[in-house]
């Protein structure tokens, strides 16, 4: 049996939207802050303990990695401080551990905690840059496809379909392989980080494009867009000014979840050895290096970067899930 529904085209919602007309209207930064803290999104945030913990972990990890030069005990890149004699020191609580190396050291005597903090910084930077790149590409193409329609739409979406039939990691490998083939060896070494950003970005744009195209096709038939057409505005202007701001909600959700995916993809590539060079070790690189010593008993070299990766990805993912639910009026 179907539930009774309000007449869809008519009148006020039974439960009014978040804004409270009676509340005094504030403007400026404090106003925006007050509104944000008072919003339904923030409310659902406070009500979910899992989300709170995830946010705390994410902020802690991201904050610590951004502030790595300040908080890390040593600088793992400063070769002069490396002490090969200190290599393979176990974590401080294990037998033979030293309190200067809380999580132990790797094969070159680098402090593992510092390496993880710096590595996470690189992982996050690569992840965020790939997300931004994929987002720009995907949102742009999706908006174009959805708004222009016709053969433009068909072309873009067929490319997307084809790409979607390959696993993302395969595409990233392909891009990396092509880059290696085209670029001279030295240059490739310098360019590695950009190549990998491009590779991950290109492998992830389809999702943005599909979502944005879908919402664009809905929004472009809305009456406010027709009003703008009747005003004679240029189609590009209408797409950017009217449609784009109204299709960005879901993009934010995808971007958050994609960040976790991008970090994992980068880690996978680095683990496979086609990612970042050991001179700029990301979490994935650290795990790969540690992997060599797993069976000789030096488990910490690979386990701690792995744990850091899991915590980071899990917390970002949980935040993404919450954001999706909070922004979806149907689930509220």
């Amino acid at each position: 049996m179907t539930r009774p529904r309000a007449r869809p085209t008519t009148g006020e919602p039974v439960v009014p939207a978040s804004s409270d007309l009676a509340a005094p209207r504030r403007t400026g930064v404090t106003g925006a802050l007050v509104r944000a803290l008072d919003s339904d999104v923030f409310y659902s945030f406070r009500r979910s303990p899992v989300t709170l913990v995830a946010a705390l972990v994410a902020v802690l990890l991201i904050g610590a990695s951004l502030a790595a030069p300040l908080v890390a005990p040593t600088d793992p890149f400063a070769l002069e401080t490396l002490d090969l004699m200190a290599a393979f020191t176990p974590p401080m609580w294990a037998e033979g551990g030293e309190s200067v190396f809380p999580l132990g050291t790797d094969d070159q005597g680098r402090d593992l905690l510092s390496a993880i903090l710096y590595g996470m910084r690189i992982s996050l930077a690569v992840g965020a840059a790939s997300v931004v790149f994929a987002m720009l590409l995907g949102v742009g193409l999706g908006l174009l496809a959805g708004y222009a329609g016709g053969w433009v739409d068909a072309l873009i979406m067929r490319v997307a379909d084809v790409q979607l039939s390959f696993p993302a990691i395969l595409i990233a490998l392909l891009v990396d392989g092509v880059a290696r083939g085209l670029l001279p060896r030295d240059l490739h070494h310098d360019m590695a980080i950009y190549v990998i950003i491009f590779a991950i970005g290109v492998s992830g744009w389809v999702q943005y494009a599909r979502t944005v195209r879908g919402s664009t096709m809905v929004e472009k038939n809305r009456e406010y867009v027709m009003a703008a057409i009747i005003m004679g505005l240029h189609p590009g202007l209408i797409a950017l000014r009217h449609v784009l701001p109204n299709v960005m909600g879901p993009v934010l959700v995808i971007a958050t979840i994609h960040l976790a995916v991008a970090v994992i993809t980068e880690a996978t590539l680095s683990f496979l050895g086609v990612g970042l060079p050991p001179t700029e070790p990301s979490l994935g690189t650290l795990i790969r290096i540690g992997n060599d010593f797993l069976f000789s008993g030096e488990w910490w070299i690979t386990v701690f970067p792995g744990l850091a990766l899991v915590l980071l990805v899990l917390s970002v993912n949980l935040l993404g899930d919450w954001l999706r639910d909070a922004l979806n009026p149907k689930l509220r």
Partner: peptide, 18 residues
């Protein structure tokens, strides 16, 4: 177009919410 305008049916869809 300047000399003609349109009023739409759905007042909830005819104004850009943002």
């Amino acid at each position: 177009r300047r000399r003609m305008q349109m009023i739409f049916q759905d007042p909830f869809a005819s104004l850009n919410p943002r």
